[in-house]
């Protein structure tokens, strides 16, 4: 077998290694089995939970909240980022404000949003959207501002109007950076949603599932919920990468 033929299968070794190490640790009982259940019981809990169990329902809830908050964030941040990015002086005057709130832990604003929106879904979704907006906005604006000057000149020299340069050149130039923003935004939204589901009087969602399993000391179920959240985060990132590769085929080239 040529070394190259092995390449696509290399990630499997890492996963297999982790599972083997985990199996040995639980089999030899090096760690209290109450704290670390075996892979078999964890994946059994994951399978049963996702197949008609409550975990599947919680998973869907979290997907719904993350997707909604990311969609709201994108709808606000992308147009705003394009406008701000194309008017660099306006962006510079707002840069500190954007950077400040982008650096503020979104979890610190939970109480504020609780006062504003109550304990329902609106609070979770709006906190997550608020966090994601700033990340996406920042990236879109920079994508527009860093549009290749030669490309803008090329369009200008052909006689393109400002509006046409904006839509035909700047918008497309900013797409690779916009996708960086969307990937970061959706990851942040998921983090915020899961935390919110743990603590803000939640009845469902993956965060609630993890928290409840911990309260009941149902460790296999807790690990299963953590893995479900991990798979969701990884899946969302992968989804955006695939969309980017399909529609922003020139990215990085």
């Amino acid at each position: 077998m040529k070394p190259d033929a092995l390449k696509p299968f290399l990630p499997i070794f890492g996963v297999a290694g982790l599972l083997v190490a985990w199996s040995i640790v639980t089999w030899r009982q090096w760690v209290d089995p109450v704290l670390l259940p075996s892979p078999v019981s964890t994946f059994a809990a994951l399978w049963n939970g996702m197949n008609g169990g409550p975990l599947g329902f919680d998973f869907v809830k979290t997907v719904y909240r993350t997707a909604t908050s990311t969609a709201i964030a994108a709808m606000i941040a992308i147009p705003l980022g394009i406008v701000l990015g194309s008017a660099e002086r306006v962006y510079r005057s707002l840069e500190f404000v954007i950077d400040f709130f982008r650096s503020t832990p979104a979890s610190a604003t939970f109480p504020l949003f609780l006062v504003l929106f109550g304990v329902g879904d609106e609070t979770k979704i709006s906190v997550a959207a608020f966090g994601a907006i700033l990340v996406i906005l920042f990236n879109v604006a920079y994508g527009v501002m860093n549009a290749r000057k030669t490309r803008l000149l090329a369009a200008k020299v052909m006689g393109a109007s400002r509006l046409r340069v904006l839509f035909d050149v700047m918008l497309l130039e900013s797409l690779p950076q916009t996708f960086v923003g969307l990937r970061n935004g959706v990851s942040l939204a998921l983090v915020i949603i899961v935390v919110a589901e743990m603590f803000i009087g939640s009845q469902d969602g993956l965060g609630h599932s993890v928290f409840e399993a911990q309260q009941l000391f149902d460790m296999p179920r807790m690990y299963a919920a953590i893995f479900a959240a991990g798979a969701l985060g990884y899946g969302l990132n992968l989804l955006f990468l695939l969309i980017e590769r399909r529609f922003v085929h020139w990215s990085g080239k």
């Binding site: 030669t150 490309r151 090329a154 050149v169 797409l175 922003v248 020139w250």
Partner: peptide, 10 residues
Amino acid sequence: QNYREALFPW
């Protein structure tokens, strides 16, 4: 001069 940045990659 810079064809790489003058053409539209999309």
